Computed example of a mutant assay.
Amino acid sequence: MFATPAYAQAADAAGAAGPQAFLIQMLPLIGLVILFWFLLIRPQQRRMKQHQAMIAAVKRGDTVVLNSGVIGKVVRVEDKEVGVEISSGVTVKVVKTMVAEVRTRGEPAPANDAKT
């Protein structure tokens, strides 16, 4: 008989603090959204902008690395495509977005052997 009024009082107190209790429950979810924004979404947007700027700056004579790992020299630049010479006399037409890295003309390629 004594337990029933105590439970009723506790339930009434929780119901009175409804908006505050809801805010406290939503606070971790809001925190996770902010955390995901700063750790995942924002860096990905920054990398995407850098990649678009790199692709826009591709010019004839640059050495490029494609997403497939093929390295070649740019011989022709169009709006959405690039002509890449992968071997002497072998030119491949590639979509610009598939360019993973642009190397400058004077940048040397790394050596295959490891120096110790």
Rank of each mutant, 00 (worst) to 15 (best):
F2I: 03
A6F: 15
A6H: 11
Q9E: 07
Q9N: 14
A11P: 01
D12N: 08
A13Q: 10
A13N: 14
A13F: 11
A14Q: 09
G15R: 15
P19K: 13
Q20Y: 06
Q20P: 10
A21P: 01
F22Y: 08
L27W: 12
L27F: 07
L29H: 07
I30F: 07
G31C: 08
L35T: 09
L35R: 02
L39T: 04
I41C: 04
P43V: 01
Q44G: 13
Q45F: 12
Q45H: 05
R47H: 09
M48G: 06
Q50N: 14
H51T: 12
H51G: 06
A53D: 00
A53W: 13
M54W: 05
A57I: 01
V58L: 10
K59A: 10
K59R: 12
T63L: 04
V64P: 10
V65C: 02
V65M: 14
G69H: 00
G69L: 00
V70H: 00
V70I: 08
K80S: 14
V82Y: 02
V82H: 10
I86W: 00
I86N: 00
I86D: 00
S88W: 05
V90E: 10
K96C: 12
K96N: 10
E101W: 03
T104I: 03
T104L: 15
G106L: 03
A109W: 06
P110N: 05
P110Y: 10
A114P: 14
K115W: 11
